[in-house]
Structures are given as C-alpha cells and as structure tokens.
C-alpha cells in the first residue's frame, strides 16, 4: 500500500490548482522518534520536513495526473525549492496548495504553498508555514528507450481511494 501523506483533497480546479490537507496525529509512530527525549531535553514530536515535501509531491502530483485523466505516469523529478519555516506538530493540520506553473507533454512544474491550521483557534486564518516548488516528469515521454509497465503504477489504489473519499470521480 502506498504511504499517503495527505488525508483529503478539499479543492480541485482541473489542470490549475489543488488544495489538500493532512492532519498530524500522535498516532504516527515516527513522531515518537523525531525527536525522542534525550538527556536534558524533553521529547519534541515534529513531522519531518522530508515528509512535508512528500505531502506536497502527492498534492501536486495528483493535480498534474488529474489534468490528463491519470493517463501519464507522473514522477517527481526535482525539488526546485523547499522552505519550511514553522515546525508542524501533532494536533495541527497542514494545508497544501499546489498550482500548475507550466505543463506540456514532457512534464510539469508546480508552485506550492504550505500553511498550518490550528484547530484550537478556528477564528484565525491558516498561518504560512513554507513554500515547496516541484517538477514532474511524464516518464513515458522522457525516458525514450526505457519501457515501463502498461498500467499506471504511479496512481494506484491508495490515490484512487483518497480521491473517492474526497468526493472526486476517478476512472476504475
């Protein structure tokens, strides 16, 4: 099963913009190691930046894949920029907004805004957390001479389930 780093798609404008959220939960085991208590220091559970980037890659990847009805195998090719200024901690919700910057037959570039929602302060707007810009390759178009399986292994059941539970129609 694919390790999903977003919980729900909340907005989708085909080929243009997708917003997804991720609830950070203390039930996630890795938070107990990142960072565990050490002599002279209490435990500090923080969602690792690498997983925040993966969350944006899934958000933007779905946006790029959806634009072509998931016919292309969309692979993360490059992290063009990643700035994370606030620690995401359990009990908060990350809001990912991915926007297509450019897209053609070979791939796409996206810009991404990361925000943090504090459920204890629903009156406050999401606070800026960082920015993650990415590049995606449609691998069948770029790795000439290499062959890949016919079926789209990128957008497997995990993604389809996520989209369905978010109320978005996906091909069977």
């Amino acid at each position: 099963m694919r390790w999903m780093w977003i919980d729900r798609v909340v907005e989708l404008e085909r080929g243009r913009r997708l917003v997804a959220i991720k609830n950070i939960s203390l039930a996630e085991e890795h938070l107990h190691d990142h960072f565990e208590a050490a002599p002279g220091r209490a435990a500090l559970p923080v969602m690792p930046a690498s997983l925040v980037i993966e969350g944006m890659a899934q958000t933007a990847g779905i946006l790029v894949g959806h634009a072509e009805d998931f016919r292309e195998k969309v692979i993360l090719a490059k992290v063009s920029r990643a700035e994370i200024d606030v620690d995401p901690v359990p009990g908060f919700t990350i809001r990912y907004t991915a926007t297509v910057e450019q897209m053609d037959a070979a791939g796409a570039s996206t810009t991404g805004l990361v925000e943090l929602i504090d459920p204890a302060r629903p009156d406050r707007p999401p606070m800026p957390m960082g920015r993650i810009d990415l590049m995606f390759s449609h691998i069948d178009q770029n790795l000439a001479g290499h062959t890949f399986p016919e079926h789209n292994f990128v957008f497997g059941e995990g993604f389809k389930t996520l989209l369905r539970t978010s109320g978005i129609d996906v091909p069977a």
């Binding site: 090719a77 490059k78 910057e101 570039s109 390759s137």
Partner: peptide
C-alpha cells in the same frame, strides 16, 4: 531533468 526545467 534540468533540461526540461530550463526549457520551462
């Protein structure tokens, strides 16, 4: 992959 990025 940078060639695609440079083109964009």
């Amino acid at each position: 992959i940078d060639f695609l990025d440079i083109g964009f």
